[in-house]
Structures are given as structure tokens and as C-alpha cells.
Amino acid sequence: CHSECLGNCSQPDDPTKCVACRNFYLDGRCVETCPPPYYHFQDWRCVNFSFCQDLHHKCKNSRRQGCHQYVIHNNKCIPECPSGYTMNSSNLLCTPCLGPCPKVCHLLEGEKTIDSVTSAQELRGCTVINGSLIINIRGGNNLAAELEANLGLIEEISGYLKIRRSYALVSLSFFRKLRLIRGETLEIGNYSFYALDNQNLRQLWDWSKHNLTITQGKLFFHYNPKLCLSEIHKMEEVSGTKGRQERNDIALKTNGDQASCENELLKFSYIRTSFDKILLRWEPYWPPDFRDLLGFMLFYKEAPYQNVTEFDGQDACGSNSWTVVDIDPPLRSNDPKSQNHPGWLMRGLKPWTQYAIFVKTLVTFSDERRTYGAKSDIIYVQTDATNPSVPLDPISVSNSSSQIILKWKPPSDPNGNITHYLVFWERQAEDSELFELDYCLKGLKLPSRTWSPPFESEDSQKHNQSEYEDSAGECCSCPKTDSQILKELEESSFRKTFEDYLHNVVFVPRKT
């Protein structure tokens, strides 16, 4: 048989008469490798580009789960590009990614509803959504962080984005990388972005840091009482949809009607710091009717980097990364020049730590249904340095008659930039024990000054392991946590139920 035959053949030295091919099969003959313009397919066939392209389009058009959109890589027609490569849609070739590779997620039936953290986790790592997304989240724990972890990498949506009755959302900033909504599939009414009845939605994105392009379709905003109209108009300008909307697409009466839409800028007039305090004062603000001013709200939190936005980490279910302080308005003076500047002394802060701070007014709604208010920009203030805590785990070892090696770990709280350490030492008198000992005694162990690591005695271990207080009263049991108490109650309830079950099964009433 021919060298490319495997198993047997019907005619000697003829690659077209093989029972099976050793390498690849091409047009009725066995070959060692697939010549151009053919590609290896499933490690035994040679196919042309049209064959591989037909497989790709067949799966793409069917949208069946589990099928493969075949691509070409290293002269092979394979189910998908290997790690580190992405497909070129024009020629199906796998090309190296520039940075992290995109991950295209194809949605069944063309859309997916995100109504819980669990459903959001199914899209973790996706960068391109081939379909439409509907966000409908009523509640949950730590929602802002969970949504950002699972949806934060999405850069492109081919269909539309719909935010509907998501009472738990305060902001859409968890879509931190969303840059493009194509609108290839539109919501009824030709809408590519749809926001309806979101009672706590206050911000779409921080438009000073976020760009969003909507290729096709219109915007729809109705019944978002805490979303200011200025935020919607800003989205029109940034996304390129200005002029597409009709009169009733953006409701003037049901958007922002319960919001404090600040239209003035508060400026800080005085800032002073110490290692654990920050004193702030800002310019006074009074609405047209000074009785509408209820006070100020001061927001602050630790910020290692200057990239904080107002609604980071917030949701309507209680999660809030900001510390909020309510401040009463100052006494009002008739003389504008003698107006008191409101302020606040922030206490209990960490030394040498940068804080993000902003302040906003708290006002009631005027009778004319106009909203007044003022808010400052987010500023960054760093507390002063102070003395560091003591170095940890000092170790001293003498390696000769004239040297001592000293080692330690950095302090747990540096409280500033540590530039150097101060080492103090003092000579001590020799131990009298060394002169009084009889060095001729056998088995004498000389006193040693070398360091030995501390260890816990058996008594201390027994005390720590004991669940009861000892007789001397030195140790006591740790208080039980809520989960331990709940577990004990469940076990007790189970024992009672099981005992009742045994009584009912074992003891049967005697027939009379």
C-alpha cells in the first residue's frame, strides 16, 4: 500500500485506493498535508475557505447554543480562536489581540433580562453583547459592586439597553466600559436606550469621564423622579442622539420631579488639616426662599486615587461607600458681607490618608415646582503625618564578641513616609551569675543571650482551647457569634421535631 494509506488498500502504491488515510483526505486521495488554498479540518480532512465560511455563517444565523462559528488559524479551520487571539470578521482569520481579548457573548432569543446578581454573573467577562440587555433589578445585597464585577467589562451592545423598574439602582456607572450601543435591534418605538419607572436612579454616568455613542435609535425617559433633566440632556449631547427624540420621548413632568437638581456650584473657602482632623468651610448658599434650606450634607471617604465619582458603590438597598454628615444651616444675616460661612470639623480620621470630599445642599421643593440647590466639586484632601507606631517583631542576635545583629519589621501604621529608623542602645553591667558559677561542674549549661522565638506554653494553649472559665478566673470563653447562636437554635429545633416524629412513629394507638 501507499505510504499515506492506513489499515489496508485495494490497489498497491495508489493513494486513492486506501481504506483510511494516515494524515489527511483531499478529493478522494490521501495526502501528507493540505496544500494551499485548503485548510486542515478536524485533523483528517482538507477543506477550502468557502466550506469553513459556510459553517461560520450557519452557526451565526441559527443562534443555536453550542454550535461553533468556525475560524481560520495556522492553516486550520477550527471552532474558535485560541487564547490571546480574536477573529477578523472580513476573512475569519485569528489575529493577536492588542491588550485583553474581546469576548463576544451571543444571547438566546436576542435579549437577556438581568433581574438578579445570579443572572448578571452569566455575563461575567463579556466585552461584546450580541443582542439586547434588559435591566430589571428590584433589590439585593452589595448590588453596585456585584454588577460592576460582572457587567463592568461590557464595551458594546449590538441591540438596545433597557432599564425598567430597577428600584435598587442609583447610577449606571457599573457599566464602566460601555462605549457603544449599535441599535441594530430596537425596542418598540425605535428606541435604543429605554429608561422607565426607576424610582431611585439619580445618575446615568459621570459624563466628564465617560463617552457613549448610540449609532441608531432614540432615547426614552419616563417616570424617573430623581433623575434630573440636565442629566438626560447631557446624554443626548454626548451620545449623538440630540435631535432624534420626539416631543413625548422625554417626559418633562415625570423626570426629576422629586430630585434636588443642583444648578449652582458650592466653593470651599477654608481648608485646614491635622493628622486626624480636617476643618472645612464653604461659601454660604440661600435659595430664593431661605426657609427652603434644610441644611447641608457632607460626604467623605478614603480615596487612594483621584478618580472618585459621587455615586460609586451606591445602591438604593443601603450600600453606600460614603460617610454622610448632616449639618444645620448657619444663622442668616441681613448683611451679605457678614454672612457666616458654614463648615464642619471632621474628626477621627487616619493620618497621612487622602480623602475625597464634597458637600451639597438639602432643600425642600418650592411652590413653583422649581428645584434649587448647590453642590461642590469633589475635592481631595490629605491629612498630615504623625509619629508612626512601633516597629514590629524586633530580633537581636550576637554573632561574635563585638557585634549584635538587630532586625525588625516595619510598623503596622507608618502614618507617613518613613525615611529612617533611630536605634538606641545602652551598655549593661555583666551578670554576677557568670562569676559565681563553678565551671568545672559536669552538665553545666552556660547562660545564653542568643534570641529564641517566643512560644506559647501548654497552660496558655489549654486556656485558649477551654470553653469555660478556669477556677483562677484568668480566662473566659469568647462570646458566641450570631451565626453560632442561630445554628444552635436550628439544631435544637431539629432535635425537638425529630423526637416528636419518633414518638408518633414508635407509639401507635392500640386498636379498641
Rank of each mutant, 00 (worst) to 15 (best):
K103D: 05
K103M: 03
K103Y: 05
V104H: 12
V104T: 15
L107T: 12
L108M: 14
L108A: 13
G110R: 06
G110S: 10
E111V: 13
K112A: 07
T113Y: 08
I114L: 10
D115E: 00
D115Y: 02
S116Q: 02
S116A: 04
V117F: 14
T118V: 05
T118I: 06
T118H: 14
S119N: 09
S119M: 14
S119V: 07
A120S: 09
Q121P: 06
L123F: 09
G125Q: 14
C126F: 01
C126G: 01
C126H: 00
T127K: 14
T127G: 05
V128N: 01
I129W: 04
S132F: 01
I134A: 08
I134D: 15
N136K: 03
I137A: 06
R138K: 12
R138D: 03
R138C: 03
G139V: 15
N141L: 10
N141R: 07
N142Y: 03
N142T: 15
A144N: 02
A145S: 09
E146V: 04
E146K: 15
L147H: 02
L147D: 00
E148C: 04
N150W: 13
L151Q: 00
G152W: 10
L153P: 09
L153T: 14
I154A: 07
I157Y: 00
I157P: 00
I157L: 05
I157V: 13
Y160L: 04
L161I: 13
L161Q: 01
L161W: 00
K162V: 12
I163K: 03
I163L: 03
R164F: 11
R164M: 14
S166T: 11
A168S: 01
A168T: 14
L169S: 12
L169W: 01
V170W: 06
S171F: 06
S171A: 05
L172G: 02
L172R: 00
L172S: 03
L172D: 00
F174N: 02
F175L: 10
L178R: 00
R179P: 00
R179F: 09
I181A: 01
R182H: 10
R182Q: 02
E184R: 09
L186E: 07
L186M: 11
E187I: 11
E187S: 11
I188H: 12
I188D: 02
N190E: 06
N190C: 13
S192C: 02
A195D: 00
A195H: 04
N198D: 01
N198P: 00
Q199K: 15
L201Y: 00
Q203R: 13
L204Q: 01
W205I: 01
D206F: 06
S208T: 09
K209F: 12
N211G: 10
N211M: 12
L212K: 01
L212E: 01
L212P: 05
T213G: 08
T213K: 04
Q216F: 14
Q216H: 11
G217E: 01
G217Q: 01
G217W: 02
L219H: 03
F221K: 01
F221V: 09
F221A: 10
H222T: 04
Y223P: 00
N224L: 10
K226Y: 06
K226E: 07
C228Y: 07
L229A: 12
L229R: 13
S230H: 02
E231G: 12
E231D: 15
E231L: 13
K234H: 12
K234I: 10
K234P: 01
E237C: 15
V238N: 15
K242T: 06
K242W: 14
G243M: 06
R244D: 09
Q245W: 05
Q245S: 09
Q245V: 06
E246R: 11
R247C: 05
R247K: 09
N248Q: 04
N248L: 10
D249A: 07
D249P: 14
I250S: 12
L252N: 12
L252V: 13
K253P: 10
K253G: 08
T254P: 07
G256Q: 05
G256T: 01
D257M: 15
D257L: 13
S260W: 03
S260L: 09
C261I: 06
E262F: 10
E262P: 04
E264K: 06
E264V: 01
E264R: 08
L265T: 05
L266F: 09
L266W: 01
L266P: 00
L266I: 04
F268A: 01
S269P: 01
S269H: 12
R272V: 00
T273K: 14
T273E: 04
T273W: 12
S274R: 10
F275L: 14
D276M: 03
K277N: 15
I278A: 05
I278K: 01
L280V: 13
L280I: 04
W282T: 02
Y285E: 01
W286E: 06
W286C: 15
W286L: 11
P287M: 10
P288R: 14
D289T: 03
R291L: 07
D292Q: 14
L294W: 11
L294H: 13
G295K: 14
F296R: 00
M297L: 14
M297Q: 05
M297I: 11
L298F: 11
L298R: 00
L298H: 00
F299K: 04
F299V: 04
Y300A: 05
E302R: 03
A303T: 14
A303S: 10
P304I: 07
P304E: 10
Y305G: 11
Q306A: 14
N307D: 04
E310S: 08
F311I: 07
F311R: 13
G313H: 14
Q314Y: 02
D315R: 04
A316F: 14
C317H: 15
C317P: 09
S319N: 14
S319K: 04
S319C: 10
N320V: 02
S321F: 12
T323F: 05
V324L: 08
V325P: 00
I327R: 02
I327A: 07
P329H: 02
N334K: 14
N334Q: 13
P336H: 06
S338K: 10
H341I: 11
H341G: 15
H341L: 09
G343I: 03
W344S: 07
L345M: 07
M346H: 02
M346G: 06
R347I: 05
L349S: 01
K350R: 14
P351Y: 10
W352V: 12
W352N: 08
W352Q: 15
Q354S: 04
A356K: 02
A356N: 01
I357C: 15
V359P: 00
K360D: 02
T361V: 04
L362S: 07
S366H: 15
D367A: 03
E368Y: 10
R370T: 12
R370L: 06
T371S: 10
T371H: 10
G373A: 02
G373P: 04
A374V: 06
D377R: 11
I379F: 05
I379W: 06
I379C: 13
Y380H: 01
Y380Q: 04
V381Y: 03
V381P: 09
Q382N: 12
D384H: 14
A385H: 11
A385V: 03
A385L: 01
P388L: 02
P391E: 02
P394M: 09
I395R: 15
I395H: 13
V397G: 14
S398L: 02
S401I: 13
S401E: 10
S401D: 05
Q403K: 15
I404Y: 01
I404V: 14
K407L: 05
K407W: 06
W408M: 01
W408K: 00
K409V: 09
K409R: 14
P411F: 02
